[in-house]
Design a protein around this nucleic acid. Sequence first.
DNA 1: CGATCCCGCCAGTAG
DNA 2: CTACTGGCGGGATCG
Length: 341
Amino acid sequence: MSSSVPQESDFNPQIYSRKDKSLGLLSSNFLKLYNREGVGTIGLDDAASRLGVQRRRMYDVVNILESVGIVARKGKNIYLWKGFREIPRALNELKEEGMREKVDAAYCRSAEASKNKETGGSETQTDPLVPSLPKADSCRRDKSMALLTENFIKLFLCSDVGILLLEDAAKIMPGDAQNPTALRTKVRRLYDIANVLSSINLIEKTNHPEYRKTAYRWLGGKASRESDGSLDQSASRKRVFGAEITNYSLKRKKTDSSMDSQSHEKIMPVYGKQDELENEYRCKTLEHPLKSSSKAIDFGPFAPVKFRREDQENRHMRQVHDVDTMSSKYRPEYHNRGTQL
DNA sequence: CGATCCCGCCAGTAG
DNA sequence: CTACTGGCGGGATCG
């Protein structure tokens, strides 16, 4: 048989496809690789080489997954695999924290009528919609992708928005909503985040009913503090839009038909059973039930695991069969530069 | 074209 | 200091 591992030929612009390198795909592959028995710790270097990507990319994926509880940082270069079962707990925490912040924010809003709080940065003007949250974000760690991910999720958990345009999310979230450059950067980051959250099926890409623009729909259900650990089942049974606690008040958006319009196919994950849960959260693109020797599944940085059946282009479909060998020679090596340190 | 979002430079942080 | 992290935004691709 021929080699299934991408080689230098990938330098070929005709073969190269940006989609084969997406964060969402990397996330899916990461999950397939570690979601199994006996996985305890994850070495970033090892993961990077096994997945055929630069280590830099692992940070992106891991930081986002950590916000959802799937992995936890254990130490330098080491992460702990927690699994899908941790998602409910993580979401509950995010929701509680989000609700708390929202209250505080509302509190500040009224009290900050003519008061200009510190803000610590250089700009950070008061957000028209959501006054900067109490937690001053000025440290590097605080304006990270992880925080962005958390805030993005809180937006869904603490408001009744079912569908959100990334641009709106960027404006709603704490930070400079007026600075065009900052906003652009934030949106770019949200694209990354949305892609990996999509690979977990926490959200789904659709297009807004009225605006005809790409938007994301929350699929993760509503978290609830009670029954520590599990998500509110009644609410997650079916995608529920009517939340109790409301708005982060999206300026526009008249969610008229609060009920989706042309959405279907993918319905709410049903929580409850550990296996069901894992089955649902499991990265999409996996059609196999639960087991699967993960040895025959498409893998590799260049194995186009089509997210939707819109395989229309059925371009070069490469399949790597042995996870443990799809390392080394993987990237185009445009200009051997960014080699790891 | 505008929407997406990959890539890797290089500043910040941990050890 | 070195190695690890991870903002950040240029610019290639996609649709």
